[in-house]
Computed example of a mutant assay.
Amino acid sequence: MSEKIKKSAVTGHPVAHSRSPLVHGYWLKKHGLSGSYDRIDVAPESAEAFFGDFAASGLVGANVTVPHKEVAASACDWLDEAAQTMGAANTLWLDANGRLCGSNTDGLGFLGNLDQLAPEWDVSRESAVVLGAGGAARAIVWALLSRNFTHVHIVNRTLEKARTIAGEFGSKTIAHDWNSLGKLLGKADVLVNTTSLGMTGKPVLEIDLTPLPKSALVTDIVYVPLKTDLLKRAAERGNPTVDGLGMLLHQAVPGFERWFGVRPEVDDALRTIVLEDLGVNG
């Protein structure tokens, strides 16, 4: 009798745009596995019930995207340290006892992307500057602190939002308003844009990079376009840069390993497939 096919999916609302099936489908085919990975649109009014009785879905696990990451976390019987810290889970699985477990792999995805495309990017760990104070910023701050950066500066137009995140992570994390950016850039080892500015259809991120040391790494979590205006300007002045696509790909690795028992690799072929689907030139 053939082994039961393991089913997984990306859950959220909406999810029609998600590239996760492309990523996991590539890995399933590459490793010759018989599992499946689909999209499941969970309406907001149904989310609590869906995640509360996740075992009834028939899935061995799932990815969770907006707006359900917090609801999913609250439904879990066990959360890893990152998901606990962020109050949000993007990766779910059922353990051997049927408990719903949750992880937040966004920060790991960020680190995996930089480790792959800019080896030794974190040799200088004195100061990191994070632009924005949304959910993505929270994951990036967690990731930078996990690499022992001395100071992580959160810069946001609404200071109170930056203060909220800074208050969650302790004394190494400092909130600033936008007017402080120039002074902070002068001492930055890493600059990360976590805002949607620069994304296709959004306004350009207008900041003066003149004070930024040429050695500072500049990265953007936006990946459409692949090379944002920020990354283009940084590269033109000689800064090392990393685009945001790899974060999307690397955050998917832990879930696939949990569900299907094989740790997949983010390779050039996968990157090319996703870029082609996005209609972006690599």
Rank of each mutant, 00 (worst) to 15 (best):
G35E: 00
N63T: 05
S74E: 12
K187F: 09
L79K: 11
Y26N: 02
L144P: 00
A9G: 07
G246C: 13
I140D: 04
T210A: 15
H250E: 11
N97F: 11
K172M: 12
V262L: 14
S146W: 15
D53P: 12
R157G: 12
P211R: 09
K172V: 10
F256D: 02
D220F: 02
L205M: 05
P254W: 14
A118K: 06
G112M: 07
H250D: 07
R39P: 13
D177C: 03
E3K: 13
D208F: 06
N63D: 01
N179S: 13
V266E: 02
E236V: 13
P21G: 03
V15E: 04
T11E: 01
V155N: 10
S20C: 07
T173M: 03
G87D: 07
H176N: 01
V10I: 12
A43I: 01
G52H: 06
G52I: 08
C76S: 13
A73M: 07
F110S: 09
R157T: 10
L245S: 03
A83Q: 08
R138Q: 12
A43Q: 13
S8N: 02
G132S: 12
R263T: 14
R237H: 07
A9R: 03
S74I: 03
V280L: 11
E48H: 09
V60A: 08
A235K: 05
P67D: 02
F51R: 05
G279Y: 02
E48P: 03
P254D: 11
T65P: 00
A216D: 06
I5H: 06
R138N: 07
R99N: 13
D189W: 07
S18Y: 08
L22K: 08
